[in-house]
């Protein structure tokens, strides 16, 4: 995206496991994932609801809600003077708190419910600036808040700053949310389905805005979405998740043009094409996502896979096999040895 050396990672996730303690036992929401986000780059995390993508985002801020917790793995953040492992910090610690906002910020899916309804949006930005001692007094913080609102192209920011969340439309609220998240100049922005709750026109405006601000502010972005089109539009690299596993990862162009994993292939096939006739049936992925407490044995996707090989896929978890530089897939079919043996 920028001229910067893309290989220099801002955050490295390794073997991250997140579990939830439920009445039915411990359920794994995130199952040993590894990927990294380069400085200034954008990684899209793609998957259906319940695949663990949002929890992954929350892990980066150490904000997994009870009864969830990070069970193992590491999240190394290289934005500060020296690298820190976020999983080693206590969620309530001061060190963690200082990372949230100025280093890593997050925007959420529901602009409706993501604000405290009792305070003006201005106050909600100002208190964040004050909590991180960005300004000596509230007056200057307020100036900066207005400045941020202008930056996200809200009309008459001086007025909006004193508005309550319920007085704004969904699109405006999401702009305020972006202004809030960016107000401390974070190095990484986690966007958790920021456009899902918005209509299509607003969605593309918000995406444009995010892309433009990312360039301006030189930050990295982790973009969580279930929408392939959005991912292809915004990301450099894409991580496809299924039931807490990474099933495919690689540069966005590669993954979309030559998907290796049957799940990614099915996702791509399920997008209706303009050339389809009206009678063409939608290529939906068969079956339903198993609930996490009914985790299938072997490959997590084998229950819905059209290329399911009995005795193999339901027995053994495939590893991540590289098909081209930086492009990996968790499928035996992508294993060059296996392909060779089959041939």
């Amino acid at each position: 995206m920028t001229g910067r050396n893309m290989s220099e990672p801002l955050i490295e996730i390794e073997g991250l496991v997140t579990e939830f303690r439920t009445e039915g036992g411990v359920v794994r929401a995130v199952n040993g994932i590894d990927f990294s986000i380069p400085k200034g780059g954008t990684v899209a995390v793609l998957g259906e609801s319940g695949c663990g993508k949002s929890v992954t985002g929350q892990c980066l801020l150490n904000l997994v809600r009870k009864p969830g917790y990070i069970a193992s793995g590491s999240i190394r953040y290289h934005g500060g003077d020296k690298p820190v492992d976020i999983t080693k910090l206590k969620p309530t610690s001061e060190a963690m708190r200082k990372l949230r906002g100025p280093e890593i910020a997050m925007i959420f899916q529901e602009p409706m419910t993501s604000f405290d309804p009792l305070f003006t949006v201005g106050e909600q930005i100002i208190e964040m600036l004050m909590a991180h001692q960005r300004f000596p007094n509230r007056r200057e913080a307020r100036e900066h808040a207005i400045e941020m609102l202008r930056k996200v192209r809200l009309p008459s920011p001086e007025i909006i700053v004193d508005r309550y969340p319920h007085q704004l439309s969904g699109g405006m609220r999401q702009r305020v949310m972006i202004a809030l998240a960016l107000s401390c100049g974070p190095k990484l922005l986690i966007a958790d389905e920021p456009t899902t709750a918005l209509d299509v026109t607003t969605e593309s405006q918000i995406l444009d805005l995010l892309r433009q601000l990312q360039g301006e502010m030189d930050m990295a972005m982790m973009f969580i979405t279930h929408d392939l089109a959005v991912a292809s539009e915004i990301a450099d690299e894409v991580v496809v998740m299924y039931l807490g596993y990474i099933v495919e990862r690689g540069p966005v162009a590669e993954v979309l043009s030559a998907p290796q994993h049957p799940y990614t292939q099915a996702l791509l096939d399920s997008i209706p094409k303009l050339t389809d006739s009206a009678s063409t049936r939608l290529n939906a992925i068969q079956g339903m996502v198993p609930t996490p407490d009914q985790m299938p044995s072997g490959c997590p996707f084998h229950t819905r896979c059209t290329k399911f090989m009995a005795g193999l896929c339901d027995q053994k978890l495939p590893g991540l096999y590289e098909s081209s530089a930086g492009h990996v897939a968790r499928c035996f079919l992508a294993d060059p040895q296996f392909a060779g043996a089959a041939a």
Binding site: Q286, G287, M288, P290, H302, T303, R304, F308, D314
Partner: peptide
């Protein structure tokens, strides 16, 4: 194709 998948889809 497994049974689980079968009855879930159809």
């Amino acid at each position: 194709m497994t049974d689980i998948a079968a009855d879930a889809i159809s």
